[in-house]
Design a protein around this nucleic acid. Structure first.
Length: 277
DNA sequence: CGATCTACCTGATGGC
DNA sequence: TGCCATCAGGTAGATC
């Protein structure tokens, strides 16, 4: 579900609401939410620790603990982090509950159970969390010169949608935002990365930055099912700005041609057949 | 190396 | 009403 803008929204909420707070207790009831190490180890490494700051790398949320360790959360398709109180009824599929000494509660809710939480020593990141260690360029956090971006794109032979959603190359884009970026850049999902002109690479670079920043400002995209909500359970509003995603059969807002939907890599892909080349 | 499947899950939706 | 197929924001692994 959530891509960079949604994860960043949750990160900011988490930092605002829980930085400086101390963990009182941890209950892990989910069967699959803890896959690296045991539930007991996770609870032990969190109990009594203070949340210092919440960071983000790609789609991973990283809570820096006062022990120096990282409490990492990946929401995958359906995960949510929700702030609540101990007495409030728990939604179905609540897998991890963290109580804080001041009385608030943090919940990890995840119907499809693809998401995960774990604690890692950042010094052992490469061995214990290679997926996190090997992430590529984060377009919100990492400075990047456009010439370096151009070198990266032109040195690969990959369809553009594959390149944009490859977390080793660019960290944070998924199915919605790759389609929106490609429309903003005027490029088709199946263009080979090494065939781009210099101007096209520049447009792609600017489109990534523009779409990501605007989507973060709108607190992410929530689709009809509202699977994505922020820490307080509120939806985002960037879906109102979507140019192609979910707009099959509607007029392109730039050229008035009809937006098409196709299958690419097993996922729905939306594009304008006229102004994306 | 890149492209294409499959699998991991629950739940919503639509056709018949 | 029920039953079945399809689809959903992600990612890893197998295969060619």
């Amino acid at each position: 579900m959530p891509e960079l803008p949604e994860v960043e929204t949750v990160r900011r909420d988490l930092d605002r609401e829980f930085a400086g707070k101390k963990v009182k207790s941890v209950q892990v009831t989910g069967v699959r939410s803890v896959r690296r190490g045991t539930k007991a180890q996770l609870a032990k490494r969190l109990a009594g620790r203070t949340f210092k700051t919440a960071k983000r790398k790609g789609k991973y949320i990283i809570v820096v603990l006062d022990s120096g360790e990282w409490f990492v959360i990946h929401l995958r398709m359906s995960g949510q982090l929700l702030k609540s109180t101990p007495k409030a009824p728990k939604p179905k599929h609540t897998h991890v509950v963290i109580d804080f000494t001041q009385g608030s509660q943090l919940r990890f809710v995840d119907p499809r159970t693809f998401g995960e939480v774990f604690v890692v020593d950042p010094a052992k990141l490469a061995e214990e969390a290679p997926d996190l260690a090997e992430l590529g360029w984060d377009p919100l956090d990492d400075p990047m010169l456009w010439v370096d971006f151009a070198r990266m794109v032109l040195s690969r032979r990959q369809q553009l949608k594959a390149l944009l959603t490859d977390q080793h190359v660019i960290a944070g884009l998924g199915n919605i935002y790759s389609d929106e970026v490609l429309h903003a850049a005027g490029l088709r999902y199946d263009r080979q990365s090494n065939t781009l002109t210099v101007q096209e690479v520049r447009r792609l670079f600017r489109a990534i930055l523009e779409v990501v920043h605007e989507a973060v400002a709108a607190r992410g995209s929530s689709l009809a099912d509202e699977q994505y909500v922020d820490l307080h359970g509120r939806p985002g509003s960037y879906q109102e700005h979507h140019q192609v995603y979910g707009r099959e059969g509607k007029a392109c807002l730039r050229c008035r041609a009809t937006i098409e939907r196709t299958k690419w890599g097993g996922r729905s892909t939306f594009y304008c057949p006229s102004c994306q080349v």
